[in-house]
Simulated scan of single mutants.
Amino acid sequence: MIKNKNSEQIKIRNWVEKNKNSVIKNLINLVDINTWTKNKHGINKAYGYLEKDLFKKIPDYSIKKYKQNNLGDLLYLIPKNALKKKPIILLSCHIDTVYEINRQKIKQTKDKLFGPGTCDMKGGLIVAIYSLLGLKELFNNQENIQLLISPDEEIGSTAYREIRKKIYQSVDYAFIFESCGDKDELVQERKSIYQLRLNTKGDGGHAGYYVNKNKSAITTMMSVLLKLDKLNNAISNSSINIGVIKGGTQANVIPEYAEAIVDVRCFGDNNMRNLLNEIKLISGSEKVNVETIIGIPAMSVDDKKLKKILSLLKNSFRKENLNLRFEKRGGGSDANQISQYGALCLDGFGPKGNFSHSSKEYVYVDSIFQKIRLMVNILSKFI
């Protein structure tokens, strides 16, 4: 256990240096297991791998597994001797990835590790786990730090909602391990995300006789979608992506039905409400129905709560020769949900990488080690 604060950073660095081979080995083995969101067997197999090795090194934790029929488990690690007097900290990660079949071979170069999920977010998961291991070995204390691993973040974390809600309501701070920004920025704001299904009906008929008289469902849908496309950047950096269009049966039949799936994003929940009202107004004027498929609130940070730990964060970043910076992102994460329940929620504690959700995905190896050192340093100030 470290007693001299002046030697703290040196001991953290030495500990990470000693464990470098273990970190990369475990990350490679984890990446090698396909954990596509709907691959329940693969996700639970990955959990089994973690339990056989890494979780045994933190015996002070109880492992709770919540189960569903169609998805992998929600894994929740909590200290056996939790200290209620100290602020409760949640480390939030996800283990699922986006492809049913791995489209990328694992490859390591001098400075990068390539493979599915290396950046999003198995690299971040490894950082979180080794942060707990470092706290155990160097400080012999993690009684107020929890770890939650989600199996379905890539599809909006829609399962286990009531369980998650109880966990989120019980914590004071939440650190999310999505990858950091290009300049190691943390994330303090994310867009609200809605996916909408639009559908409409037309008159139908033979294209040779009724095309000038009968209404086409596709033509109606196109008219609405073109108007919605003009709402891009109209409200708080809003983005509207027309992702899927379906309609018609064959070329000589006037379409009786058309459907579209639209992704809508903007910063701020009030802005999203205004944007959705505008979409419904435009759609309703042409008798196009609007149905919400997914609705995810915006992530934002309480500035007053952030101010209380700002100095701590700046000092920890400085020890890694980093400047504390923040950025906004258009993509969502579990931070969108967690931030709704009162905890100070910061995202982007995972390692630096690129090309998530693609066959070129990679993570910078040195960034993994740096983020472990950073997190051990930050978390040690809370225990």
Rank of each mutant, 00 (worst) to 15 (best):
K227V: 03
D53C: 08
F55K: 09
A258R: 03
K45E: 13
G42P: 01
T158Y: 15
I235D: 01
G202Q: 04
R197C: 15
L281I: 10
K25A: 10
L148Y: 06
D303T: 13
E8C: 02
K136A: 05
V301E: 12
V224E: 09
I282N: 12
L75M: 12
E162R: 07
I58F: 03
V98M: 06
K64P: 03
M375S: 09
R190N: 06
D111S: 13
K165G: 00
L281Y: 12
Y173R: 04
P151A: 12
H357A: 10
F139S: 05
A82N: 10
L27F: 09
V224L: 14
I129V: 13
D303R: 15
K328D: 05
N199W: 08
D32M: 09
I106Y: 00
Q68W: 10
N81H: 11
R265I: 01
P79K: 00
K80H: 11
L231G: 03
N377K: 02
L90R: 00
L148E: 05
S333Y: 06
A174E: 04
S300K: 03
I95Q: 07
L133W: 11
F175I: 02
E162T: 08
Y47I: 12
K122E: 03
G353S: 09
N274C: 08
K80N: 14
F267M: 06
S339E: 06
K319L: 11
N102H: 13
K110H: 10
S223R: 15
R325A: 13
N212H: 10
K307E: 12
I372H: 11
E259S: 07
K246R: 09
Y76E: 01
T35I: 05
T158E: 13
I24T: 10
D73K: 13
K40M: 07
K166W: 07
D303W: 15
G353V: 04
L324W: 08
Y66I: 14
A174Y: 06
E153D: 11
Q169I: 02
E361A: 05
K308H: 08
M222E: 14
Y130L: 14
I167W: 04
A258G: 05
S22N: 14
V187W: 00
I89S: 01
G48R: 07
N277P: 00
A128M: 11
E256N: 07
E8L: 03
N70T: 14
M221D: 04
G342K: 00
I309F: 02
C266E: 01
E291F: 13
S356M: 15
